[in-house]
């Protein structure tokens, strides 16, 4: 469904991605792991067109979308739940969700109502707060809202950028439960960016590990979980010399 080939992205003189290639198959949950600054968010920003890659290609459903505008990419069926949630703070919960439907063009009222009902079924808390402005929600609720907003787009591919960031452990569990059920129930393909490797691997079928802008490992989730190398990437190795 999504195929990225030797993608390179720069911020000014800094090369954030150095020839990254990866593939996401229809209906799969794929995780993208790596520590801070490894280039995970840059990859997401490149896919959604918020930054323009300098080399390489991004192909979505056999169409090259490299360098297309963010608006047009979202209309092709890629929704993104950005890092740091980025809900619209001044709009209320329901209006935030409505914004998620913009990429689908004009819709009949009944269909929108139907979609809202579905989201409220997944996240009952959002229905309770539907008239509250976004900024009054807690971090966890904002995360729910951001995911709900992404789902309102009925995407074929959902990009989730660090959904567990800054959430308490109980909420992290909850978020991952939702991610799993989204994939299982609607068959939505998901690309999940995470620092929390154990959690991410528990829902994914396949995973890539990024370090300093390059893919350093890729394998099925179970194999990576068992891999000692993973441990080293996260906690380092070696001894103090001198």
């Amino acid at each position: 469904m999504l195929r990225i080939e030797s993608l390179s992205t720069f911020y000014g003189a800094v090369q954030a991605l150095k020839g990254v290639s990866l593939e996401v198959r229809q209906g799969a949950v794929v995780s993208l792991l790596g520590s801070n600054g490894a280039g995970k968010s840059t990859l997401i920003r490149s896919i959604t067109g918020l930054v323009a890659p300098r080399a390489g290609s991004i192909v979505f459903k056999s169409e090259n979308i490299t360098g297309k505008s963010t608006e047009s990419i979202s209309r092709r069926g890629i929704a993104c739940v950005p890092e740091g949630r980025h809900i619209f703070p001044g709009l209320n919960v329901e209006d935030n969700l409505l914004m998620g439907t913009v990429s689908r063009g004009k819709l009949p009222q009944s269909e929108v109502a139907e979609n809202l009902k579905e989201i409220y079924r997944i996240f009952p808390i959002l229905q309770e707060f539907k008239k509250k402005p976004g900024w009054q929600l807690s971090g966890g609720q904002q995360q729910m809202l951001a995911i709900g907003r992404g789902l309102m787009a009925r995407p074929q591919l959902l990009l989730l950028d660090e959904p567990s960031l800054g959430l308490a452990p109980v909420l992290v569990q909850e978020v991952f439960r939702v991610i799993r059920s989204i994939n299982e129930q609607s068959g939505t393909t998901i690309l999940l960016v995470e620092q929390n490797a154990r959690m991410a691997l528990s829902v994914a079928s396949r995973a890539y590990v990024l370090a300093t802008g390059q893919v350093v490992m890729e394998n099925s989730a179970e194999k990576l979980l068992a891999d000692k190398e993973m441990h080293r990437h996260y906690l380092g190795g070696g001894k103090k010399e001198g």
Partner: peptide, 24 residues
Amino acid sequence: TMLGKMMQATAQDKDAARLMGIPI
């Protein structure tokens, strides 16, 4: 109105508005 809300969304967070497909 939807247009009004889209204008508000643009004012509040341009990148997020783009991700929603709003022509900012």
